[in-house]
Amino acid sequence: MSTAVKNQLRVCVLSIKYNIMKEMINKVTFLTNICFMMLNNASILVQWFVLFRLRKDVGGYTMREILLLWGLTAASFGLSHVLFARVFSLPELIISGKLDSYLVQPKNVLLGVMTSSTNISAVGDLLYGVLLLSLFCSSIGRFFLLVLFTVTGTVIFTAFALLLGSLSFWFVRMEILGRQLTMGIISFATYPDGIFRGVSRFLLYFIIPVGMAVYHPVHIVVRFDAEMLAAVLLYTILIATAAAAVFYRGLRRYSSSSLMEARM
């Protein structure tokens, strides 16, 4: 690994560490946020337990697949919001001209922005996801697949938010559509893909990337499919590259501002 990459990683790790330290200042808020998020997630699973007492399966999913679906969604969503929360509020940074401090540093602007904030309730999502996924770690192979899909899911969620957020370099008020679509991922990612047909299924695989982030990984863990795995990996690389390219293209249009601001 080159010294430049090592130094960049060191700054990213320090930035994430300082973000979490900031949230830990008030330990009561820190712990209650995490616990309530886990409870909140668990309460929704109760509804699924009740439903599966009435039906054998929903959209081809049994309770086992639902737990796997929730585990992957919560772990990926949680990890992306713990490490890269700022991406989800990128339009605000662009519109109010708050990228200046990242642009005067001799480091990668995108990584600097991405790692500059954390969402502490997402730690609850991450822990909840890891807890559910641990139920499926029956072999080393399974363990590695689950880790891999948590990472690809995190990259896809983050890249999708980055792609939409970067449109704010061109269009004002894009954050509303962006927020709806990124939250749409979570809404759809907690239901079996078998219940979606036609246009909605097309949307979930090609427009809102839930299919590649969660549905395909669930299918691969249940029954291994090398082609599907290759598709997920390729898509992850493609969306990450496209999101970074759009961000840097947009950065040339960045117009800064003279608003008073502090790094909180």
Partner: peptide, 24 residues
Amino acid sequence: GQKEQLWTHLTPYDNFQFFGAIYD
């Protein structure tokens, strides 16, 4: 003057260490 670059929840010492890492 109108834009702070320091992390407000950190001490100046920790901030300087962070800036030291930024500049390798």
